[in-house]
Design a binder for these strands. Structure first.
Lengths: 219, 219
DNA sequence: CCCGAGCTGAACCGTGCGGTTCAAAAGAAC
DNA sequence: GTTCTTTTGAACCGCACGGTTCAGCTCGGG
C-alpha cells in the first residue's frame, strides 16, 4: 500500500514528525518479543511507539505485515552485529587459535544478547505459521553468518593456517560448537549466562575445532 | 482439584469411559503444537479430543495447566525415546566410531521427528512466559539426555576407548555437533531433512568428535 | 497567511476467546 | 432398578482483540 510514499523526509529526532515507521517497528519488535505474536495487541504496540493506533495501520496495513517487517529489521540489525565478530579473522597476527577464540566469544556475546535471543525465540515460535518468513530470515541472517565464517576459514586454510577440505562443514561445526551448548546453559534464554562461561564455551569450542582442523605444520 | 479422584478405573479402549485425561492431553499438545499457545483455543482442543469443553475444565482447571501438563507428558515421551538412542554405546563391539555414529544418527532421527520439533518450538516460544516450566522441562528432558550420554562416554573413557577428561564437556560438544547443524538445515523444522543428510551430519559430528577425544592408542 | 497531508484520540463494530452454568443424559456400583 | 458421578451440549458472560471511522488538531510548504 505505501512503500514509495515516504521520500526524502528528514527531521532527525523522530519525535516530532516522521520516522514514525522506524519507531513503530522497533516498538512492535519489543512487544512481540515480550508477549509473542498471538498475545501481542496492536494497541500496546502503538502505545509503546508513542503513536495512535490508526497510525500503525496507516504505515503497515496489517498485524501480520507489521510482524514480518519488524522481524526483517531485527534480523538485519543482529546479523550486521554478528558479522563484525569475524573481523579479527582477516589477519590473525597473534595466532589462529587466539583469533578463533576471540571471534567465537564475540559471536556468543551477540548470540546471547537480548535482541538476538528474542528474535530466535519469536522465529522459532511462529515458524509453523510463516514458513516463508523463516526461509527469508535465515537467508538474510544465519545463512550470511555461516557464509562469512566459511569464507574466513577458507582463507585461513589457503594460507596454510588450517587444514580444511570443506569450509562449509567446518563453519557449520564451529558454529554448532559455539551456539549449541548455550541452549541448555541459558535455559532457552531464561537464565543470564556470565561472561566467564561464554569464554569457557568459546575456548572449548576452539580447542575441539582445532583438534579436527588444525594445520599439520604450524611453520 | 482432582488428583486422587480417578482411582482404579480401567475400561481399556479410552473410547467409552475414562482415559479422557490422556486423550485430552494428547489432543492439547497437538493443537498447541499446530497453533501456538496464544492462538490455540480450548474449544478446538476439546473437539480434537472428542470431548465436551466443560470436561476439559473438569480434568484440568485451566488453559495454562492444560498447557503445562501437555508439555510435561510430551517431554516424557520424547526423552524416553531419545534415551534409547544411546543403548548401542553400552558395549560397542563393532568399534567405538561406528557406535557413536549410530547413536548420533538415532538421536538425530528423534530430534527431527515431529513431536520433538513441536516440543522445542513450543518451549522456545513460551519460554518467556513460563520460565519455571522451561527449567523443569529441561531438567526432565535435555538434561537427562546429556547426563546419559556423559555417563556412556565416561564408561568408554574408563575402558580406554576414548580420551576424555571432562565427560560433561564431551557430551555437550557431541550433542552440539549433532543437533546444532539441524537448525539451519531443517529451517527450524520447516523443511523435512532426508535421512541421508542426517547420516552425513552424524558422520561429520563423529569424525570431529573423535579428532578431539579419540584414545591415543586403540590397542 | 492559508492549505492540505498526516497524526490523533476516541468511539465503534463484529468476532472469538476463556471460563461458567445448567438441565438433561449416560454409565458404573449396588 | 436405583442412585450417584460424570459427561454432554448449548447457551451464556464479560472481555479484549483486530480493524475502521471520523472529527479535530498539528504542522510543513507555499
Amino acid at each position: 500500500m505505501n512503500g514509495a510514499r515516504e521520500t526524502g523526509r528528514r527531521s532527525g529526532t523522530s519525535r516530532g514528525r516522521i520516522d514514525k515507521r522506524r519507531s513503530i517497528l522497533a516498538a512492535a519488535f519489543r512487544i512481540f518479543a515480550r508477549d509473542g505474536y498471538g498475545q501481542s495487541c496492536v494497541r500496546e504496540i502503538a502505545a509503546e511507539a508513542g503513536v495512535a493506533k490508526p497510525t500503525v495501520y496507516n504505515h503497515l496495513g496489517d498485524k501480520e505485515t507489521l510482524f514480518r517487517e519488524a522481524m526483517q529489521e531485527a534480523v538485519e540489525r543482529t546479523t550486521a552485529d554478528a558479522l563484525t565478530a569475524f573481523e579479527g579473522l582477516r589477519e590473525p597476527g597473534d595466532g589462529t587459535a587466539a583469533a578463533l577464540e576471540e571471534a567465537g566469544h564475540r559471536l556468543l556475546r551477540g548470540h546471547c544478547g537480548a535482541e538476538s535471543r528474542a528474535l530466535r525465540g519469536l522465529l522459532h515460535a511462529e515458524a509453523g505459521h510463516f514458513p516463508d518468513l523463516v526461509e527469508e530470515l535465515q537467508r538474510n541472517g544465519a545463512r550470511r553468518v555461516h557464509d562469512a565464517l566459511a569464507d574466513r576459514l577458507a582463507r585461513l586454510a589457503l594460507g596454510g593456517r588450517l587444514d580444511i577440505s570443506d569450509p562449509d562443514r567446518a563453519a557449520e561445526q564451529f558454529l554448532a560448537l559455539l551456539t549449541g551448548p548455550m541452549e541448555l546453559r541459558s535455559g532457552l534464554g531464561t537464565r543470564e549466562v556470565p561472561d566467564a562461561e561464554l569464554h569457557s564455551v568459546a575456548r572449548a569450542a576452539t580447542d575441539t575445532f582445532l583438534s579436527a582442523y588444525a594445520a599439520p605444520a604450524t611453520a
